[in-house]
Structures are given as structure tokens and as C-alpha cells.
Write a protein that binds this DNA or RNA. Structure first.
Length: 634
RNA sequence: GCCGGCUUAGCUCAGCGGUAGAGCAACCGCCUUGUAAGCGGUAGGUCGUGUGUUCGAUCCACACAGCCGGCACCA
């Protein structure tokens, strides 16, 4: 047996994973929950009867935690079957932070049911029931599950490929179809789990199927990690952009404009700070800003293919002469109109048209979420018209721009996904071959690592999806780069080449922030509302300590404002401690206190959000210093 | 859109078949203040909307809307 450290051990005959772990050491035997044999995970009870590469999987390894969570799902299913025998079990996998199990049941589970189920799960863990794997003959397994009324399980067996084993796992009186591996016994799960909530979920993810009851839980190797996870959830709640949006007076939402944001002065200041930053970054690298109509005739959407693919999600309007118009759900057809409005020469390529494009999409009501998923939003959209030869250079330049901009917003960790042709699409397969090859070559040329996201491309082309990781470790897909050979053809875009003939341009659809609304939501949560100085809606407050200093406070605020800072004066009749608290809660980055002393010396006392330290400065120095600090990056 | 839950003052939340309460915020006054809550007072609600049951509904039932958690969707 070859072990992970490269050493090998000899055994006289076949041995189980558990015995192997025990042979290595008692500590390992205790922590062991499964064994990896020649790269594949198995139960500890698996008999190893040939020379193999072996690794013991312990409960603190990522692979081990996944098994633990999968077992938690099984224990939950056992608990549910004991408490509610009429319930059918379906699927119950591990997730990122826990597990779920989908149950088929007439009456939905209530929160009280969850408490009962969780209690019973703890009993089952205490019972420490052995978990045993059995391989069954296919027909017998189907007959068995049908006989016990588990129709979903029986149906699923029929879809397991013929060459695969049908394995069942038995714990106590509960038997479940499962590939495993699993723990040796229910006691090994431990008690560091918790049921979280119930939700509806379609059988096999298909809305045409029955809706099942999905019970979510979280599970960890030990209580400490469970507690940490629950604390992270609380932290996420504290940072929730809907909560901070209200507390910081950034925006609100209301029934009369579902899915649209009412931006308040502070929120709009933040929005404009981001917009002007983006505008400057784009101009520097050769984009030209445009603005295209909100309403465009139906015929254009038919030509682009959007009418066919997204009709249900478009807002439709009618003009008085009975033309049918759609409120634009995206900007590309508009940009193509600008491109094809006159003859274009190859000398103009690459032509980069950018728009802070205000779009409307009639999203299903259940999809809406704060300002992250809305019906009215603005994209930092642009379309690059270029030749096939220019694709790689444009793609590399775009990736560099995107990563640099993400860094400026405090996102260092960015993953890339490569999304290939979807099942329903426009354009010939040969066109897709070329597009996918080009995009793959481009991302490789940019020297960036990516993972494949098969079948997730846009209907007109493959795409790169840029996923950033926030301060809480959550992933958000924001940027995109899409390579499109289809739209230029459908909308009749061409340019005159060096040879004097007409050629089709390639179109790159690209966005960095995605939507302003969503990106601002992400920023709020990433920074927990503590924006860096250049983004803070109010950058500084000048608070007077006594009435005597009020006039001077106004003067200081005036000087800072004249230097271009966003500043307010607080000359109200409150103690300085009260003012510091109020403005700290409002997350204003700089609080400047001025009393009689400062007024006499023309100085300020400066304090940063989150720190009790005070800094005494001359007014002129403070203005220069803050002004320099508040300069946007890039 | 689907499943489930929720909806009481600006916010956070009590409450109950006999038409409502707290804290914070707001407003007014006193205090003239030195770095995360000084003190006192005042005002504030068609209990999401509609229909029904009832002598009487914020409370019970039904419908609708919005929101929340998921699912599905995301050009």
C-alpha cells in the first residue's frame, strides 16, 4: 500500500480501510471517515485486496467534510421517515456549507416540524447505527423501492447507466439508494449540525415536475466551525445591502415601482462617483461613449433574435400609430445601429462603443432581490467591433482593464469561467466552433486560468464570466466578455476592408461591473457600508464643539467643499460625543471636530471612522491632505 | 412564475375577537458642551389592500399585493 507521504506498507492479506487506518495509528483511526483507494473515495469497510495508493480521509479534510454533510442528509432522511412515514425521499446531497434533502409530501413542513426532525437526528446520532453498503440487482432494487412506496427512487434507478452498480446504504431501518461513500456509523456525524429552512424545489430541477419540500441544513466537523458559520451568517445579515441602504439613506424600493430603485441623494452620489470613475477608465483605453434609445421597434428585436428568445421578459409599449416597441432589455442592437449608420472602414476598427445603458427586463417576481436583481438597471456596457485578427488583443486588453478596475474596488480574487454554446442558440455550429476557439485562444493568451461552464453561453456566442470574491468570501459574477459572430450578421453590420470588399465585423459584448445596481449592492456588502474615501457619499463632517465654534465649522466645511470634497457641517446643539457617535454610525470616514481652541489657531482635530485616535492639523494642511486622499484611483 | 413564511408608528419589535404599546428616531424646550448616547416634554398608527364570518375584526376565513428564504429564470 502506498501512502500519501510516499512511503509504502506491506500487509499479508486483504485489509479494510478501517484496519489500515488503525495500523497507521489510533489517532488516525479515530478521525478516519472514509478511504481513498487509487484516487477514488470508498467506505472505510471496503476491503482492499490489491496493491493500491491509499489515503485515509479524515473529518477535517474537505473531502471528509463533504461525506459528513452527505451523511447528515441521510440522517435527516431517516429522521423524517421515522416521524412522517408517508413522506417519500428523493435526493439529498452535500452543499458548500451543509446539505439538503428533497422530500415528496402532501403537507409542507413547518418550522416546528424542523425542530422535531433535528431533535430526532440527534437521537439517531446517539444511537450510533452502523451504516452498511449493499449492492443490489437492479430489478430487485426497483421492486423494493416500489414496494415501500418510494416512487422517486424507483424512477431514478431506471436512469442509472446499465454498467453502474446499484448500491444501497442501510442505517437502522432506513435504506437509501446512494453511491456513497458514507461514514461507518451515524455516531460519527457528531452534533455540529443545524436545520436551517424549508423551501420548494422541483423534482430534477424541472418546473414541469412536482414540487418537493427541500429542507436545508448546515453541518461541520465540530461545534466551533458550526458556530463560526452561524456567526458569518449573522455578519452577512448585518451587511445586507437592503438594511444598509436604509440605514445609510442610500436608496429605497416601494410597491409602486417593483424592481426599480429610488436613489436617494447619498446613494446617487455613490452611483455617480462610480460612473465617473468608469467613464474615465474607459476613455483612457479608447472607448467612445454613446447613448441609444429606450424604445426600439419590434422588428429590430425580431432581427436580433431577442424577440424569439426573450419575448416574455421584455416590456412592450405601443405608439399612437400602433407600432409595437420594446423597452430595451440590452444595448447591443442599438450599438449596431450606430455602427451601420454609415459605411465603416477597416481603419476604424476596433471601434469601441460604450454606454451606461439603462435597460428594463421583466424579470419573474420571484427573481427580484433588493437592488441586486431588479427590473430596471444600468449596465456598464460596451461593444467592440473588430476583425477576427483583433479579437485576441482586444480580449487581453479587456481582461487587464477589468482586473485593474476590480482591484480599485478592493477585489483581488477573481475567477474566470468559460461558458460554451447553449442548447438553444442562433448561428451555425461551424460559426460556434470558430467563436469558441477564438475566445479560448484569447483567454489563454491573456495568461488567465479558467474553468469550463459548458452550455452556459449566450444564445449568440460563448462568453467569459468574471467572478469576484468579496470580503465575506462570497462569489459574485459581474464581468463578462462575449464573442459574437451572429449578431453582426443578423443585424447587417459590415465594414469595407483593405481589399475594398465588404466584411463582417466580430462583435465583443463586454461589461465589467455588470449592472450598477447590482454592483453597488455588492460594494455595500463588501465594505459593510464603510466605503473608501473616494466612494463615500459624505467624505467628511465638520462638527462644532460649542456654539462659539459654529461659524468656524462652517468656514472649515466651506474650505473643504471648495477643494472638491463632499462635506457637511454639523453645528447642532449636541455634545461632541453625541455627534461623533451619530456620524460614526452614519459611517462617515472623517470626522473633524472644531472648538474654541481650533478656531483660535485655525486648526482642526481629525478622526477616522473606526479609530478613536485624534490628529491635530492646520486647516490648510487638512484640506490638502484629505483632498489628495479622496482622489479616485486610476 | 412555483413552494413556504412574513406584513402593527420612520426603524426594531410587543400585543389582542371589545377599534393599540415599548425602545430608538422625529419635533419642542432646558443644558454650552472636547471625541461612540446630557435631561425633560410633545407628536406620531384606516394594524399591507379587498371581501367575508361575527353584535363587534388589527386578531378568524378567503382573495390580492409586496417583501423574505429557496426553486426555476438571468440575453
Amino acid at each position: 500500500m502506498t501512502l500519501p507521504d510516499g512511503r509504502s506498507r506491506q500487509f499479508p492479506g486483504p485489509i479494510t480501510g478501517a484496519e489500515l487506518a488503525a495500523a497507521i495509528g489510533p489517532g488516525l483511526a479515530k478521525a478516519a471517515i472514509a478511504v481513498r483507494i487509487d484516487g477514488r473515495p470508498h467506505d472505510l469497510a471496503t476491503i482492499i485486496d490489491h496493491d493500491s495508493t491509499i489515503a485515509i480521509i479524515t473529518r477535517d479534510m474537505p473531502e471528509g467534510v463533504e461525506i459528513l454533510r452527505h451523511d447528515a442528509a441521510h440522517v435527516m432522511a431517516e429522521a423524517v421517515k421515522e416521524l412522517y412515514p408517508e413522506t417519500q425521499v428523493t435526493f439529498g446531497p452535500a452543499t458548500e456549507t451543509g446539505f439538503y434533502y428533497d422530500f415528496a409530501r402532501e403537507t409542507p413542513f413547518t418550522p416546528e416540524d424542523l425542530a422535531r426532525i433535528e431533535e430526532r437526528m440527534r437521537d439517531i446520532v446517539k444511537r450510533d447505527e452502523p451504516i452498511a453498503r449493499e449492492v443490489w440487482e437492479r430489478d430487485r432494487a426497483v421492486a423494493f423501492f416500489e414496494s415501500v412506496g418510494e416512487r422517486y427512487k424507483a424512477e431514478y434507478i431506471g436512469e442509472i447507466p446499465a454498467h453502474e452498480e446499484i448500491s444501497l446504504y442501510r442505517q437502522g431501518d432506513f435504506v437509501d439508494l446512494c453511491v456513497g461513500p458514507h461514514l461507518p456509523s451515524t455516531g460519527r456525524l457528531g452534533q455540529a449540525f443545524k436545520l436551517m429552512n424549508v423551501a420548494g424545489a422541483y423534482w430534477r430541477g424541472d418546473p414541469n415536475n412536482a414540487q418537493l419540500q427541500r429542507v436545508y441544513g448546515t453541518a461541520w466537523p465540530n461545534q466551533k466551525e458550526l458556530d463560526q458559520h452561524l456567526f458569518r451568517l449573522e455578519e452577512a445579515e448585518r451587511r445586507d445591502h437592503r438594511r444598509l441602504g436604509r440605514e445609510l439613506d442610500l436608496f429605497h424600493l416601494q410597491e409602486e415601482a417593483v424592481g426599480s430603485v429610488f436613489w436617494h441623494p447619498k446613494g446617487w452620489t455613490l452611483y455617480r462617483a462610480i460612473e465617473s470613475y468608469m467613464r474615465r477608465r474607459l476613455e483612457k483605453v479608447g472607448y467612445q461613449e454613446v447613448k441609444t434609445p429606450q424604445l426600439l421597434d419590434r422588428s429590430l428585436w425580431e432581427a436580433s433574435g431577442h424577440w424569439e428568445n426573450f419575448r416574455e421578459n421584455m416590456f412592450i409599449a405601443e405608439s399612437r400609430d400602433e407600432r409595437v416597441l420594446a423597452v430595451k432589455p440590452m444595448n447591443c442592437p442599438g450599438h449596431v445601429q450606430i455602427f451601420r449608420n454609415r459605411l465603416r472602414s477597416y481603419r476604424e476598427l476596433p471601434l469601441r462603443l460604450a454606454e451606461f445603458g439603462s435597460c428594463h427586463r421583466n424579470e419573474p417576481s420571484g427573481a427580484l432581490h433588493g437592488i441586486m436583481r431588479v427590473r430596471a438597471f444600468t449596465q456598464d456596457d460596451a461593444h467592440i467591433f473588430c476583425t477576427e485578427d483583433q479579437v485576441t488583443a482586444e480580449a487581453i486588453a479587456f481582461c487587464e482593464l477589468l482586473l485593474s478596475i476590480y482591484r480599485d474596488f478592493g477585489f483581488e480574487d477573481v475567477a474566470i469561467k468559460f461558458a460554451t454554446r447553449p442548447p438553444v442558440r442562433a448561428g451555425a455550429d461551424a460559426t460556434w466552433d470558430v467563436a469558441e476557439q477564438n475566445l479560448e485562444a484569447a483567454v489563454k493568451a491573456a495568461g488567465l486560468a479558467y474553468t469550463l461552464n459548458p452550455g452556459e453561453g449566450a444564445f449568440y456566442g460563448p462568453k467569459l464570466e468574471f467572478v469576484l470574491r468579496d470580503a465575506l468570501g462570497r462569489d459574485w459574477q459581474c464581468g463578462t466578455l462575449q464573442l459574437d459572430f451572429v449578431m453582426p450578421e443578423r443585424l447587417g453590420a459590415f465594414y469595407i476592408g483593405e481589399d475594398g470588399a465588404r466584411h463582417r465585423p466580430v462583435m465583443l459584448h463586454r461589461a465589467i461591473l455588470g449592472s450598477f445596481e447590482r454592483f453597488i449592492g455588492i460594494l455595500i456588502e463588501h465594505y459593510a457600508g464603510n466605503f473608501p474615501l473616494w466612494l463615500a457619499p459624505v467624505q467628511a463632517v465638520v462638527a462644532s464643539i460649542t456654539d462659539e465654534a459654529a461659524a468656524y465649522a462652517d468656514e472649515v466645511a466651506g474650505e473643504l467643499a471648495a477643494a472638491g470634497l463632499r462635506v457637511i457641517a454639523d453645528t447642532g446643539n449636541e455634545k461632541i460625543g453625541y455627534k461623533v457617535r451619530e456620524h460614526s454610525l452614519a459611517k462617515i470616514p472623517v470626522i473633524i471636530a472644531v472648538g474654541r481652541r481650533e478656531a483660535e489657531q485655525r486648526g482642526v482635530s481629525l478622526r477616522r471612522l473606526g479609530s478613536p485616535a485624534q490628529e491635530a492639523l492646520a486647516l490648510t494642511d487638512a484640506v490638502a491632505k484629505l483632498n489628495a486622499e479622496a482622489a479616485p484611483p486610476g
